[in-house]
Design a binder for these strands. Structure first.
Lengths: 229, 229
DNA sequence: TCTTTGATGACTGTCGACAATAGTTATTTA
DNA sequence: TAAATAACTATTGTCGACAGTCATCAAAGA
């Protein structure tokens, strides 16, 4: 794989630790599908590609391990996370639980700003929908849900949800070969959800976001059944 | 604070990385209340206390940061997590959500083994209840709930729940001055919950575990109101 | 042929030293 | 005196080197 030699150094004005820059790079490589599930990451190799020493690399990998994005085996090596069918499905069932909680809290309090932000994302989705760029759509979808979770104003919830974001984005990119075929449906689901929220229909909103998440998960996993994970 | 000089070296037969040993030590110190919220952790000091270099210390701290147990500020330092009233309350509301999901899954499938394990913990609780050892009771309580979450057989759920365990144990030890006064009540709640599970009453079990968690949280936070956090 | 043993190479784990940064105190300057 | 600036100190961030561990493969023995 190619991270681009020394690319971490661009725009190095403020003292952002190399560790964080490396972690961001790896997350990016993951989200863009430049790293494959189960693939080994060799510290020295990565360090040389980035033109830095191994210490910040190791620290970045440990950070990512806690987020579940890589798996560090003592004295053996670091591997890109590798979820099986069940593991991917878990991402969606857990998201359904967390986001149900999130949307209840949002609708109890913080609804105005949240809805404004959601419409913003929605507008961008409409644009991207035409281009058919599935990577951009995955990012927007992820942002959409992140807004809801952040809107819940519950730090522990956000911390629990956050790692799921990268994982499901990763698998969306990695697995889904025909995402474009369902872009319109997904956009419609989001539109409907915002409207329900605007109408203040809590229980309906809960059902919609849950079924939206579960449907998305099933859609993704149907690709697996067709093409293998 | 005193971690005991070179104490990480005892029983060093198998190649368990120093990083993990250090992380375990710190977690232990947290759970035992040897570290106070907001307290600074100086790498070199800790390294010298343990008789090792800073590298594994740093890596352990980064690992713990991702679990939310410490807060690493770039170029400034590492601080023991410091939750305010709201933050502690969040631990319990999120736990209620996660453990509701967990218990539903347990009761759908894995109930036999889980209940056996729960009764085991319950028996130990009875014993400890008489001694009034609040640290042991907090550990047993934590184990009790961990069994339920693990019984759900849902790795992503467990990963989301796991960091909460240390946090609420930490604050239980740190905050609660009169835990012993309510030991019996807590034990009774657990007994009732197991019986409900045995009877297969899903919705009742859900309500019980939710109210059990929420009540425990309220109880803890009432101490805060009295004595400050 | 199959297992065991022992070298070899590649990689991870740990270390001590140095560089970079933030906070503090001392010094200059108006 | 008070503000700005310049050392100084404590601590974190990064580096290169070395030690420890694992996997591989060849040689030896059954």
């Amino acid at each position: 794989m190619d991270y681009g030699a020394n690319s971490v150094w661009k725009e190095l004005g403020r003292p952002k630790s190399l560790r964080q820059q490396v972690a961001d790079q790896i997350i990016n490589a993951l989200a863009l599908g430049h790293l494959k599930p189960g693939q080994r990451i060799v510290e020295l190799e990565l360090a040389q590609n980035l033109g830095i020493s191994r210490a910040p690399i190791r620290e970045a990998l440990i950070q990512l391990e806690q987020e579940g994005l890589v798996h560090v085996v003592p004295y053996k090596g670091t591997y890109v996370m590798d979820l099986n069918y069940t593991g991917v499905w878990e991402l969606y069932t857990l998201r359904a639980v967390l986001e149900e909680f999130a949307i209840r809290r949002v609708m109890e309090s913080n609804i105005r700003d949240t809805i404004t932000s959601l419409w913003d994302i929605y507008d961008k989705m409409i644009e991207v929908c035409n281009t058919g760029n599935k990577l951009q759509m995955a990012e927007l979808d992820s942002k959409f849900h992140e807004i809801i979770v952040r809107g819940a104003d519950h730090e522990q919830l956000y911390r629990a949800w956050y790692p799921l974001k990268y994982k499901y984005m990763f698998y969306t990119i990695t697995i889904d070969k025909n995402y474009s075929s369902s872009l319109e449906i997904v956009v419609k689901m989001h539109e409907k959800l915002i409207e329900t929220m605007e109408n203040g229909e809590v229980e309906k909103a809960v059902e919609e976001i849950k079924s939206h998440i579960i449907e998305t998960g099933k859609l993704l996993l149907s690709q697996v059944a067709d093409h293998g994970i």
